[in-house]
Design a protein around this nucleic acid. Sequence first.
DNA 1: GTCTATATCTTGATAGAC
DNA 2: GTCTATCAAGATATAGAC
Lengths: 199, 199
Amino acid sequence: MSDGQTGSTHETRQRIVRAGTELFRRSGYTGTGMKQIAEAAGAPFGSIYHFFPGGKAQLGEEVIRTSGAVYLGLVATLMAPYEDPVAATADAFTAAADTLLKLDFADPCPIATVALEVASTNEALRQATSEVFDSWIERLGAYYAAGGIPGPAARETAASVIALLEGAFMLARAARSTAPVLSASGAAAAIVRAALPEG
Amino acid sequence: MSDGQTGSTHETRQRIVRAGTELFRRSGYTGTGMKQIAEAAGAPFGSIYHFFPGGKAQLGEEVIRTSGAVYLGLVATLMAPYEDPVAATADAFTAAADTLLKLDFADPCPIATVALEVASTNEALRQATSEVFDSWIERLGAYYAAGGIPGPAARETAASVIALLEGAFMLARAARSTAPVLSASGAAAAIVRAALPEG
DNA sequence: GTCTATATCTTGATAGAC
DNA sequence: GTCTATCAAGATATAGAC
């Protein structure tokens, strides 16, 4: 590269963020150590502080925002093929149950555990999780609005559906069973149906 | 007391459990230290290991099961005055929004943060959270069954309502706003209504 | 930019005087 | 049964050689 920058710096950085994402998801924010992240990323310990001079908090915030953006894209991908928002919602939940099994009940939501941990203890990270949740609600709400749910009800429905999904993940992980997510599939459909004018 | 036992030992023990409950709720399991708990309980550090020889894990399990039992009683108290399960459910959510404000957005659920933290990292504690959630679902399910929801739908509805409440708490704490819980009130009502035969 | 060694602090836990 | 001192191991973070 003509400017003397190699591509490998970004790759190391990326591996660190990815390792952080996976570990935070499994062990939470306080439960994951920086050394553990470095080792999982195959990066020397010092590299973390080279790329993240702000330390664990800076890395945590980047992990939250990055995976938030990834999952924001996932909302569109999941919903796009459907014309009926009720069926789209119900099927997203059954797909989530499959994901849960594939992950062996690690958290399918990359920020849920961290969000609860930092809500009362770290204002910057709380803010980051808040903005991520809000972006998801906004996008799903726009989808519901396009699907026929009028006015502010579209956003409120989206918030409730996402809350239901997060809570179902919590119960499912605790029980090591997909049953709560599968039950929630029907419940989510009921929420959306009730918000439609003809419902 | 004739056997020479003073009451104060139990009081110290109780203060430790109570302090643990409050701290776990705010900072999570890994985010809370044993010294921190001792200090908050006004107990000398060694007392924790006197009453809980199994250390943090034993204390954590007792906190989970104790507050699980307390909240199990709360389900009955909240629901008892109502004949209509739809109205009872909706009102429970608006009451939860008030609680959230009173707690300044500390977790109204005493085990949610811990449940996510331990789900993939501590089998004994995961089991404890699972049994607590199950007891809540069972009791609320019985209430819904008595209210007219037939067969296995009663339990499934209860699981979805509790999941929705937990998820709404998560979004509300992240946003420092009761809006998600208030939106969820209507959504919960829709879930219950859809499960009733005439719904 | 990479990597190692280390400083400093805090953790969970234990020993032992009282 | 109360309380203090301390341990070994872990944490986050930094300094500095290469």
